[in-house]
Design a protein around this nucleic acid. Structure first.
Lengths: 223, 223
DNA sequence: GCGCCTTTGGTGACCAAGTCACCGAGGCTT
DNA sequence: AAGCCTCGGTGACTTGGTCACCAAAGGCGC
């Protein structure tokens, strides 16, 4: 096991320049948590008492609609913070989204008290927090833009390229891809069938391989 | 003219409990601006040096797509702050949205320096800022949910009820309504024609009147 | 008032996407 | 082997977005 508890601070770009005394406070005033894949990291109605900085793994943030369906909002990767909980932490408002660990995760939990003290004391920490916010907001803007103006086939191609590992394999059912893009499974099935027809992918149950990345990339580029 | 410069602080719910010394600093370290309807309040690429707190009027925040079309994101009303500029202010990231004064506006401009000092010094101010952020983010979540799952007729009915004045009049062209909802003008025309057929509205050039609010409200409620 | 132009709104044809209902294949359990 | 559940495929239909075009309404100069 790597020594996360020693210098995890340097894993966060925006925190590298924290002065030594603040670093000490941060290390002291926070703790490291682990959770297995599938854990509900946060949920509506459950007031958050910690800001989470993700060390390992990824967290899927989604919104549950009243109608029972779900919209994928964004994914928090290692090295990023889950600012949604910050919002909740200080404003005491309930949020409408929930977060689920997609993999086993390790994260630093900064309790409200420590967070507030650091925001007051350190300009570097403030910038870190506001940068994280601004990035999320602009991500959401981009998402909205995509949803409204982008064709589904282009969005699916983009997502496949993102999700593929080095070997070009994407492990996901059509239903999962549909929920990532906020569309219906049938639409994914039809679009993937078309990609296959064009020789860009090969499908098997629960996964697919990109065998013609170039085609997908061209579709994305020309969008 | 009302004495905005004296006690505008009390117009903001979250700031009412600022202690006197902080209030003084805030008043000293900020200034009041006015702008006529149509002014571009902020724009992509233009780095923001002020946090704006809106005293009078409303600002429309929208995202310009690469394809030239626009998506309406949200509206900032009097008594609210435009946190998007905050994000930009501290993180130095460019944002992708622009803001346009829909009416003549008056706003308090808090320069970066004052803003940063206040965030450091005052817990009340911190809460105010984070609450504003969290509200915007949850608003965006709701917007995404609406776009993905809600039918256009329901969304249009909702918007008409919001935009109507006391007499039930909505002053807006079909094109404006279309851009508010991120759809095409033709769709608005068709939907409004249907509302008219049902006796819910009456149309004339550039405006319409709700003559059957109950019908619209029922549609929204049952959505 | 009269022409001229711009803005606004209406329409039909077509395409993309979401919905509904249903089915069949693959894999797992017992 | 039988039963079951998950996954994916399909056709018919509705909704929404796009395109091309037109007509009516209002503003403006003269």
């Amino acid at each position: 096991m790597e020594p996360f508890d020693i210098d995890w601070i340097d894993r966060f770009e925006g925190l590298k320049r924290l002065p030594p005394d603040i670093r000490a406070d941060l290390t002291q005033g926070s703790q490291i948590l682990s959770a297995p894949a599938g854990t509900q990291i946060f949920a509506p109605g459950q007031s958050a008492d910690n800001l989470l900085l993700l060390l390992e793994g990824s967290v899927r943030v989604q919104q549950k609609s009243d109608t029972g369906r779900e919209v994928f909002l964004y994914r928090v990767h290692a090295g990023e913070s889950c600012v949604l909980t910050t919002a909740c932490m200080l404003s005491f408002e309930d949020y409408a989204a929930d977060g689920i660990a997609e993999t086993d995760v390790r994260a630093v939990a900064i309790p409200r008290k420590t967070f507030d003290a650091l925001v007051a004391r350190s300009a570097v920490f403030r910038t870190f927090v506001f940068t994280a916010y601004s990035r999320r907001i602009t991500d959401l803007f981009t998402l909205i833009d995509d949803i409204v103006f982008q064709r589904m086939d282009v969005r699916l191609a983009t997502r496949l390229l993102e999700l593929a590992d080095e070997t070009g394999t994407v492990v996901a059912t059509h239903a999962i891809l549909a929920s990532e893009l906020g569309t219906a499974r049938e639409v994914i099935s039809r679009t993937l069938a078309e990609f296959q027809r064009r020789g860009w992918i090969e499908q098997s149950r629960g996964k697919l391989s990109l065998i013609g990345r170039a085609g997908l990339e061209r579709m994305v580029r020309l969008a």
